[in-house]
């Protein structure tokens, strides 16, 4: 058991994946000497060389487009996008190429590409550094999308994603990079595409992923003081969604709230609300509620606390749900 920050856990997970498979190649801006702006790749170029840890030209379309060619040669490219807001120059390659090549080639050309994106806000940054673009990718058939919330999931998840034969958008909650937890690196991890109940409860089912998992747990603790028992589920995988545990939970609690930082309209919460309603309609005591960012551009940092869901807004939704 070692205590690791989420960032360090990613670093160790990447190192392990590179040791296990010589075909793993890391690509991204500033990931070599600098170790990435968040130091997630710290020391890897030094130990694995410039062929395996590539400081790329400043061109995201290039990073993803060349990853396709490398994958065709049997490599497993792990692409770092420096910040969420800078994935869009690569969006064309991701959506029109990476996502479709397996289907187009009828499986002859697998695309085991991992696209690592530090995502979400709360770090006081300037614009384009705090966004939550997951819905764009979850909406794209052919891509899988996961979001990690803990050091242990970061450590194992990045290795599982790299080993997976499909292209995966791997979302890292940047504001949680520095948070620590114990990681048993010898443990057998849960499957990558599986949600997880983090806390049992009877009154309401609270769903979150990535940076909002911690907020959801805090809300559950706070609600306990008011005598409310909240079940918290870390979704972990956004595409495919794994909602069996959620359905089971909602059938017991009759109430469901989904939290994410991304704008609420057409966010992951919308799809989850639809599925929970379709599947658990007769058990529901209240409509599925969503707590998310507003339908506005991500605001300047002085306003991000007003924009982002926080403990109070989650508790407010819990109150509203219980009030039905």
């Amino acid at each position: 058991m070692t205590t690791l920050t989420l960032g360090k856990a990613l670093n160790m997970g990447l190192r392990k994946a590179m040791e296990d498979d010589p075909k793993v190649v890391l690509m991204g801006e500033d990931i070599g000497k600098l170790g990435g702006v968040f130091r997630i790749t710290d020391g890897l170029q030094k130990d694995f060389g410039e062929d395996r840890v590539v400081d790329t030209p400043l061109a995201e379309a290039g990073i993803l487009g060349t990853a396709v060619g490398l994958a065709m040669r049997g490599y497993r490219p792990v692409c770092e996008i420096q910040f969420d807001g800078f994935v869009f120059p690569a969006y064309n390659q991701i959506v029109t190429q990476v996502a479709k090549i397996h289907a187009r080639s009828r499986g002859r050309l697998p695309m085991p590409i991992v696209i690592r994106i530090p995502f979400g806000g709360g770090i006081g940054a300037v614009e384009h550094h705090s966004e939550s673009p997951e819905a764009y990718f979850a909406h794209t058939a052919g891509l899988k999308v996961v979001a990690v919330a803990t050091p242990a999931d970061a450590y194992f998840g990045i290795q599982q994603a790299i080993a997976s034969p499909d292209p995966i958008v791997f979302l890292e909650p940047k504001r949680r990079y520095w948070e620590k937890a114990d990681v048993d690196t010898d443990a057998t991890p849960d499957p990558l595409f599986r949600s997880r109940v983090l806390r049992a409860g009877d009154d309401l089912t609270l769903l979150a992923y990535g940076p909002m998992v911690k907020t959801a747990l805090q809300a559950a603790t706070a609600a306990e003081d008011e005598g409310r028992s909240i079940e918290v589920v870390d979704l972990r995988t956004l595409s495919p969604l794994d909602l069996d545990a959620v359905y089971e939970s909602v059938r017991r609690t009759g109430r469901c709230v989904v939290v994410h930082e991304a704008p609420t309209t057409l966010g992951l919460g919308a799809e989850i609300a639809a599925r929970v309603t379709e599947t658990c309609f007769h058990s529901l005591e209240a409509p599925v509620l969503r707590v998310g960012g507003y339908d506005t551009p991500y605001p300047p940092s002085k306003l991000e606390e007003d924009y982002l869901p926080d403990l109070d807004r989650v508790l407010d939704a819990v109150d509203r749900s219980m009030g039905f």
């Binding site: 801006e29 500033d30 070599g32 600098l34 702006v37 400081d55 030209p57 400043l58």
Partner: peptide
Amino acid sequence: YAISVPIERQ
């Protein structure tokens, strides 16, 4: 430089 990346890379 582009952050840490020297001009030769571009």
